[in-house]
Design a protein around this nucleic acid. Sequence first.
DNA 1: ATTATTGTTGGTAG
DNA 2: TCTACCAACAATAA
Length: 269
Amino acid sequence: MPELPEVEYTRQRLSTWLGRGPILACTIDDARLVRPARPSAVAADLVGRTITRVERKGKWLRLVLGGNLSLFVHLAMTGWFERASSDEPLRHERARITVRGGKGGKTGEKKSHVAYVDPRRWGRWIASDSEIPAWTALGPDPLREKVAPDVLHAKLARRKKQSIKEALLDQSLLAGVGNIQAAEALWKAAIDPRSPAASITPAELRAILRGIDWTIARTLKDLAKGDAGEKDPWIAYGHKGLPCPRCGAHFVRIDLGGRTTTFCRACQK
DNA sequence: ATTATTGTTGGTAG
DNA sequence: TCTACCAACAATAA
């Protein structure tokens, strides 16, 4: 379930799980994951390298390895990392990285298995000695850097046909916002997701950016609490037919650019 | 059986 | 070069 907050949470956990390197073993069982590279070649290239740090930009992860190599990872819709306690592959496991050490273990002895699981197999692993185009093309990440409202406003002004909701999903404009966070941010900003991107005023854009900061921070806080918070954390997303907590009207669901969009007709203008 | 799903990409057309 | 649109990718769950 990865949008910016979930990928950031993944980054933090990977840092802990893999931070002690070096990589003792790596298996890649799915050719799709690394295409057009060969799985065995990528896996062999990773073994022996230390994971210096784990970075994130938008929904992309970057594992910075020794020897000037980086592993760029995108989780797509259904990819995630999970610690495995045995050598048995998990259901839908596509790859695995094993490092020495691990949380709580003594140095040297224990191995730490980190499995990559992805039922739908849309995720990507790309090993590269330089920044890949998908990473370079990303717009500013609202959690990592201050987004310049005037720059974004100028870009939105060129989107004559696109709704603001669709524009928020464009990773070259803003990196990390997905379908859920866009719905939540537009609800917070009280902006109709169908509004033409080009019609958004600077004041409205500032409200949207505040909404994005709000929903990201809130989601990160929920993730940090762990799986204890099992209740539905969303206010607008997936709430078709339920009352809007701000005005009491019922949320409606529409399609925008092929993605489901839930919003409140009464108070999102 | 049908429909829905947290995301990108590659092709086409303009 | 930029924008717009759409099918494709694949495995579940309701």
